[in-house]
Amino acid sequence: MPSLAPTLSSPSAGAPPAASGVRRRTRTAYLLLIPGLLWLGIFFVIPLVSLFFTSLQAPTDKAGVYQPALQVSNYLVALQEYWPQFIRSFVYAGIATVLALVIAYPLAYFIAFRAGKWKALMLVLVVAPFFASFLLRTYAWRTILSDEGAITTFFNALHLLPQGRILNTPIAVVLGLTYNFLPFMILPLFAALDKIDPRLIEASKDLYAKPSTAFRKVIWPLSLPGVVAGTLLTFIPAAGDYINATLLGAPGDRMVGNAIQTNFLQFRDYPTASALSFILMAIILTLVFVYIRRAGTEDLV
């Protein structure tokens, strides 16, 4: 696929530069990297290391006070107690990601190929919800899905709702997750689709490909980087989210984000909360690694 992309190499890349020039440029590059590295160090590495050591602390006989230790069992205890929340998180986030993909793909496709002069406006509309607070938007769903609301009444008339309501059920949580992270799916998909040269699609048609074949053999493979980026950008935050489960779920719908929050703020059990965070991070990293390997697009993400 890289061969399809226009060559964007800088003009200077053609001529072999003098050795001293390389050195100077390397030094400049490192200098320019310093702010970024500092940022990463202060706001990512140090908190992460501190969080890791917190996750190994052992309780003292005073509630809420912990001492440095190497208590690896914290991880086992956390997993043992909260495995349902982990499973729920990944199932909800997984469904939401698939839903978002199904909704976002046609939309991104339309914006990329068919929107014409409306392209910019439609992109703005996709991003527009970001101008309102994430929480406010989630609160709005409580009204939309309310028992007396049109949506619930409609589905109830068809006897499609096992609990007779949508709000405070897993359905509402998944819908909320899908909605909140949808733009993260649309934008990378659009970016990938927009890059596709329409002539390639025309060529496939010239070669007597049916529309479905053209999609399967040309469009879908070319949009795959967008699909991978979009699914990751949707799945990762959705798996760690707790706002949707808090506002739209019932007591039985809590996700792992809720467990972490409860441990940090209610129980003041910092080691367990930290251990949960690390387990979540590890699982997500593993999933992402396997996924990218499978999708075969490690050079494109």
Partner: peptide
Amino acid sequence: VAYQREFQKAIGM
């Protein structure tokens, strides 16, 4: 803390 844990567990946290 002990009671809170029981309670939070019952309410699904």
